[in-house]
Design a protein around this nucleic acid. Sequence first.
RNA 1: UCCGGCGUAGCUCAAUCGGUAGAGCGGGUGGCUGUUAACCACUAGGUUGUAGGUUCAAGUCCUACCGCCGGAGCCA
Length: 430
Amino acid sequence: MIQTYINEIGQYVGKEVSIKGWLYNKRSSGKLRFLTLRDGTGLLQGVMFKDDADEGTFSLFDRLTQESSLKVNGVVRQDHRAPGGYELAIRRIELIQIAEEYPISPKEHGTAFLMDHRHLWLRSSKQHAILLVRDEIISACRDFFHERGFVLVDAPIFTPNASEGTTALFETEYFGEQAYLTQSGQLYNEAAAMAFGRVYCFGPTFRAEKAKTRRHLTEFWMVEPEMAFYDLADTMDLAEDFITYLVQRVLKNKEKELILLERDLEKLGKVVKPFPRISYDDSVQILQEKGIDFKWGEDFGAADETILSNEFDKPIIIHRYPLKSKAFYMKTDPQNHQLALCLDVLAPEGYGEIIGGGQREDKLDELEKKIKKHKLPFEVFKWYLDLRRYGSVPHAGFGLGIERTVAWICGRSHLRETIPFPRLLSRIYP
RNA sequence: UCCGGCGUAGCUCAAUCGGUAGAGCGGGUGGCUGUUAACCACUAGGUUGUAGGUUCAAGUCCUACCGCCGGAGCCA
């Protein structure tokens, strides 16, 4: 008996195989029985005539409930009437467990109900497809950097310092001392870049923002490259190559899943470098020409980002934002002291910011001034300032939000479907 | 945190001017030899989010609270 998985079934036409899985659905018509089996790799239709299967198996079928676990033996054959083109002529079913009445029926459900049953919702075909795309994107991130000689140097999750400001931090206690869950691996990444040249970190990050939108999670994953001797232009090149690579990898390896999600593949196909590069100044002008009441110095709102990205059919890079609205470590533009050498990448179709980053302040005295200006405590940044004392070099980096990237590539409107167990303002269960 | 909306069967929803709870799906039972979220017949299933209030009468009106959904600020 050949033990196999549904996605490999095509190799065994005419042979008897055994598959372990769960009952996705069943139908019957007189002395004829159909079941759809799910094994994690795909769905397969099984057919059984009363005369072909043994008696125990035939009566067992009628007791099977949705999501019951079982082992099915049968002969593989090609049949155009079966979804996927192959079906199993069932000879024998071995029961593992009869499932209790399964809460998620094949009909419609509301968001709150599905989120309460996220641990079961993962079994549904769309959720399955999204998480397969996520898996592909994560492997592609690692491959991209590894192939280019970047070293993975992960940053800690417990930290004593706030990298972006103190409002959105999750506080915790660390053996009697105050600690925070990391918002970004960047500061540690800079230390790693001074050790290894080009590095990246990849892990969960935490932000206690009371943001109740489709574009925010309190726990999300970020991949952050950091490069010694890179300037802003080098970093824009890297961001372009990176996003192009991710999208093309998913198109190549997860086309089936994108089709199931009804994603417009043509739009994704257009995501190839170069991307439009627009300065903040020019972006403001574009908005004002469209009649938007936007004042220089403000940050773009979700609506503004959509207006800007709708001008193009690829991601766009917006660079050199006003310095005052940016984090303390951003390097000032030597051409214009009001601007920071930073970049954001906005995904097309209104998906908004997927990358934020820029060149870091590499001069010790400038960095000290910036810490003072932002009223941040010096003690916790002592080690960080050391990086500017011992062989400081120009360097830059960025962070890409995994869930926003998955949402954009999958064409999902809400981030909660792009991570297995989302953590939201009003949800920490299941 | 602010603004708006919604809480009715396991799920998705309906219930006219305030007049006493209804359908589809799912479950159960029976039927059907090619079904695709199968179909057909029958059937069980309700303290209408919680606590007050108005009224002869409240799912429906009022107040408070709780929960969820959508949006905003901020960000990846």
